[in-house]
Design a protein around this nucleic acid. Structure first.
Lengths: 114, 114
DNA sequence: ATCACATACCCAATTTTCTTATGTATATAA
DNA sequence: TTATATACATAAGAAAATTGGGTATGTGAT
């Protein structure tokens, strides 16, 4: 995940959420989307991404579809039913975790006040 | 660190920040403070905490002072000069990471709008 | 008395997740 | 022909947890 060494475990959530929004994406596309959205600040490395995708597929969260585009092979991933449920679960876990982090780290923090 | 599996990488930041606010804390106290602040949702395990404290000490971020209290030994930790600088660095890293996470995961998210 | 629980420290084996480095292959622009 | 972009993949190693132990004291309940 680039130079940023924080919060291991959020990569799966990122993958699942992007697939919820986009229905169908391939690996390289995911890395580019994340780079775009964070203005280059988070770069998902291939060494992290592909193992994560394979693991999610093995767990039944994703299905794949291989497709030829301009003499290049793309492997498209989509959410399964289980994957769709998992997105919600992971998202609320992450939200609650970030909330708890704020309670620990931001003295005087109150929910709902930016 | 308990049942919550999304915390990896933020423990050092939590320790440093709590010590910035409290000047002097011992290990067990840190676990209890975090439990309090998160209403039991985050429980720092001793297997994670003590190695993290020892590492921060070895890196020169913390100093220790052993004290007897009621026939029990307590090891108090405080920030060194380097540790004080490190708090700011870790905090802004974490804030920027959480911001990037929101850009990825919250479609339509704008900074400053809760 | 003994058992559970709280306080207070510690370590070792294992697992998960990442970094770093490498490999394959095609296409395009300098 | 060299670098960069696209597109997949694996393997060695490090980092940071989990899990499960161990030591020891104090207190409240059965």
């Amino acid at each position: 995940m680039s130079n940023n060494n924080l919060i291991k475990g959020s990569l799966q959530t990122i993958i699942l959420k992007l697939l919820e929004e986009n229905d169908r994406m391939y690996g390289y596309e995911i890395t580019q989307r994340v780079k775009e959205l964070t203005e280059g600040e988070i770069k998902i490395t291939e060494g992290a991404l592909y193992p994560a995708l394979h693991k999610l597929e093995a767990e039944g969260m994703l299905t794949t579809e291989i497709q030829q585009v301009d003499n290049r092979v793309r492997k498209y991933y989509s959410l399964t039913k289980d994957g769709q449920k998992e997105v919600s679960a992971k998202m609320s876990e992450l939200q609650s975790f970030v909330g708890n982090l704020q309670r620990i780290l931001d003295p005087g923090w109150k929910p709902g006040l930016a």
